[in-house]
């Protein structure tokens, strides 16, 4: 147990060092950093604007009113912002594989998957998380679900959000690991990026049963924002909580297995 604690402490220290160096790197070019933040704000504003446009013409979107839909949008933004803000190295994995720069990580005396995941975060994307949190809190206040419900729902909501992060992370890792075999897989992430983007809308919009099953199982986009929002608004649903947790665990272990399997084929280009 003590050994485990030391290991976690060490990984935490590595993560903090990576974060610190990335912030320093970004602040070296302050203007660029500022423009990136502005870009992130525009991107999030467009997402909000689109939902506002939709609700100019309808009262509810597949059973979700404006504030409820904004809970989904806010949750999606937080998950997206968190992942880009902490796991940015993973999003550029195919480039590192192609150019052989992954060498710098695999020779380090720490778990390679952890290093690939958390050695670099993009601080400019924290603005996405911040905007998401604001959207979420603003809608939550308007929904007025009551303090007692809030106390019960919040821990489950947080658990669902953790599951969301694990699910997107795992899918991303699997897709990006394909780059170990394919020389140029830089565009593979578009598949996953656009699939996860779907999760900014309520999963109930997919009225076709087959499509719905697809988004709850094969690509579990429904668990990314719709399920956490549902738990926050309507309270714990043990069936959803259990399925979300099982899906997250399965995807996490599958991605770890797949990554380690793919890593064996790393050809270390240019070394």
């Amino acid at each position: 147990m003590n050994h485990m604690g030391v290991k976690i402490k060490r990984l935490g220290k590595i993560w903090l060092l990576g974060l610190y160096s990335r912030i320093m790197q970004r602040l070296e070019y302050r203007f660029n950093f500022f423009v990136m933040v502005v870009g992130g704000i525009i991107q999030m504003s467009l997402m909000i604007a689109f939902v506002n446009i939709i609700f100019n013409y309808i009262n509810n979107l597949s059973g979700w009113n404006y504030d409820q839909a904004m809970i989904i949008v806010g949750s999606y933004m937080m998950v997206d912002g968190f992942l880009w803000g902490t796991c940015a190295y993973l999003f550029g994995l195919s480039l590192h594989i192609r150019e052989g720069t992954l060498d710098t990580l695999i020779v380090k005396p720490a778990d390679t998957q952890f290093l690939v995941t958390a050695s670099q975060g993009d601080p400019e994307d924290w603005v996405k998380f911040a905007i998401g949190l604001m959207v979420f809190l603003n809608s939550l206040i308007k929904l007025d679900i009551g303090l007692a419900n809030l106390m019960v729902n919040t821990p489950f909501y947080l658990l669902m959000m953790l599951n969301s992060i694990v699910i997107i992370y795992s899918i991303s890792l699997i897709i990006r690991s394909i780059a170990f075999w394919s020389t140029d897989a830089s565009n593979f992430w578009y598949v996953i990026d656009n699939l996860t983007k779907i999760s900014q809308y309520p999963a109930d919009i997919f009225f076709n049963k087959i499509v719905k099953i697809f988004f709850y199982t094969i690509i579990p986009a429904a668990f990314i924002a719709t399920v956490p929002a549902e738990i926050m608004i309507h309270g714990p649903n043990f069936y959803l909580i259990l399925s979300s947790t099982i899906v997250a665990i399965i995807f996490f272990f599958a991605s770890r297995k797949f990554f380690n399997f793919a890593l064996k084929d790393y050809s270390s280009a240019s070394s």
């Binding site: 593979f188 578009y190 598949v191």
Partner: peptide, 12 residues
């Protein structure tokens, strides 16, 4: 495959 995956991704 890279280009097809780009277009396929955008299909979603």
């Amino acid at each position: 495959a890279n280009i097809i995956s780009y277009n396929f991704g955008n299909l979603f």
